[in-house]
Design a protein around this nucleic acid. Structure first.
Lengths: 105, 105
DNA sequence: GCATGGCGCTACATAAAGTGTAGCGACAGG
DNA sequence: CCTGTCGCTACACTTTATGTAGCGCCATGC
């Protein structure tokens, strides 16, 4: 029996595709760790907590396909204009997370 | 050899714990689908695209532990005040995702 | 030349996470 | 009782991620 791939959000609604992409393991962390400056492959891998190179590379490919990051050979991986816009949405999380941490003890 | 659990972001930094939580499969979708009104277990399961009850329940437990959602026996699962605050951060994504979809063709 | 070290990335066996389907126990009507 | 709905569990199976080794490329320096 043939099984179809589910990831990629077959609904065709961008928001669903986006939530699906961001919901994959390490994706949010990768985008987050690129907030300050470009990072090298191995550097990024360590920053996000040591995920395997296999999955790091997979995610980087997905994020490049989504035009959220790009590889500058001279500097490393960095957010594209689009990726930086996305990050801007998430920046409030940093402050909010502190409040949240207190709330849940 | 004993293996330690990694999820839960041992760093102690709230933002990391939050990104880890949100980066788990289906979590963003669940929060998103609760944006309008409370939803029943099975209803929620269908809305997010038919994930298995096993994992839906696991995520609901994690989200309840994080005080982002709660179960009202009379109405179903719904966002807490904290969860609603979090959702507010994500709402701009809806608009942005349309722009993003056009940009990536 | 030719080793050294960093670069992005791949291979592959093992372990963890998620799926699909069946069905449980509790409770509410009829 | 029977029927339906509720949240949720059991479990065999499939998919995804981990951990470790190491590849090919290229620049630097002896």
């Amino acid at each position: 029996m043939v099984r179809k791939k589910v990831r990629g959000s077959q609904t065709g609604r961008p928001i669903m595709a986006l939530l699906d992409l961001l919901g994959r393991r390490w994706v949010l962390r990768i985008v987050w760790e690129l907030r300050e400056k470009p990072r090298r492959f191995r550097e990024l891998q360590e920053l996000i907590g040591g995920a395997s190179p296999t999955i790091v590379n997979t995610r980087l490919r997905e994020l490049r396909a989504a035009r959220l990051i790009e590889l500058d050979p001279a500097a490393g991986y960095r957010l594209t204009v689009l990726g930086a816009e996305l990050l801007k949405v998430f920046l409030p999380l940093h402050v909010w997370s502190e409040k949240w941490a207190k709330a849940i003890g």
